[in-house]
């Protein structure tokens, strides 16, 4: 059989060819371009060495995009885990209509991030937005949600969390229901209260769910693009950009394709390093728990 399996490699050639053409070659191309000064369309480009990378760290808009990308990545991930787990625990209780609640909370994940951004624009507009309408009718002051950099970043984190927390919720729900009933019964017989039941019995058993939910949310958050484009387009004054939207901005609006490529390469390496560390951490945790 092993001998026959040896011939199997031919089966992945179509996949590999497709990925070389549309992913690997373009990625190397971006790496190559990151050493040039190029406007994105002219025939000539000037060799720039490491200048793009050096000017990256002197660029305050880049540093802002870096910080925002980390906020979008880690902020959304943290919120999604806490809220997702809380929702899962809540929906694990028995009561009428809980499946309706579950269905509705997962529903926004069916909508494109771009369209959700547009819908939320109706809420967070400073004039005529639903949130400010409500604040005013309560006699409070209206808030400049999208025109203020801090608020805009917070709004984007909120929307992305709100939209995709259902994903974490169903993963945790499956995890909780996978915890053997006999463990729970045994803990109850030993007189565990509900907090002990949660922290000592259910939580340790959720490690696989936690690890996959975190990885999923983290990569999604660090690559955040659509919702920012729809809501602020990186504004005000480039202060809500993520790496993804900043790349688009440098490339098309500033016509600095070489520089955009350098930002792209940096972001790829950063996401790779972060997810490797996170994965290694969870793997170690899982081993510790087993051992």
């Amino acid at each position: 059989m092993e001998k026959q399996y040896k011939k199997l490699n031919i089966f992945y050639i179509p996949a590999v060819v497709l990925m070389i053409l549309f992913v690997a070659y373009p990625l190397f191309n971006a790496f190559y371009l990151s050493f040039f000064n190029w406007n994105g369309y002219s025939q000539t480009k000037e060799f720039f060495g490491l200048k793009n990378y050096i000017s990256m760290f002197q660029d305050k808009n880049f540093r802002k995009a870096l910080i925002n990308t980390l906020i979008y990545g880690f902020g959304c991930t943290a919120l999604q885990q806490v809220i997702g787990l809380a929702l899962a625990m809540f929906l694990n209780g028995k009561f009428k209509g809980r499946s309706i609640v579950r269905t509705v909370i997962y529903m926004p994940a069916m909508v494109s991030g771009l369209v959700m951004g547009y819908i939320m624009y109706f809420f967070f507009q400073s004039k005529g937005g639903v949130i400010n309408d409500i604040l005013l009718s309560l006699g409070l002051n209206s808030v400049n949600w999208l025109g203020n950099a801090h608020n805009a970043v917070a709004v984007i984190v909120f929307i992305n969390t709100w939209q995709f927390v259902g994903v974490s919720m169903v993963i945790y729900l499956a995890g909780i229901q996978g915890v053997s009933q006999s463990y729970i019964e045994a803990a109850k017989i030993d007189g565990a209260n509900s907090w002990q039941l949660f922290s000592k019995v259910i939580l340790p058993n959720l490690l696989p769910a936690l690890s996959s939910s975190v990885t999923y949310n983290l990569i999604g958050g660090l690559k955040l693009y659509d919702v920012i484009i729809a809501l602020t387009d990186g504004g005000p004054a480039k202060k809500s950009n993520s790496f993804a939207t900043y790349i688009a901005n440098r490339y098309f609006d500033a016509e600095r394709a070489g520089y955009a490529a350098a930002v792209g390469v940096f972001s790829f390496i950063m996401i790779m390093v972060i997810s490797t560390i996170v994965n290694a951490y969870f793997r170690k945790k899982e081993r510790d728990l087993e051992g």
Binding site: A15, V16, M19, L21, F22, V23, A24, Y25, P26, L27, F28, N29, A30, L33, G40, I219, L222, K223, Y225, F243, A244, I247, A248, Y251, A257, A260, A261, G264, V265, S267, F268, I271, M272, S275
Partner: peptide, 20 residues
Amino acid sequence: LIMSVMMITPLTTLVGVYST
């Protein structure tokens, strides 16, 4: 290598994809 593709930020590869 195939799995690492998931970590590419949108638009990083745009120029290369365009030339392909």
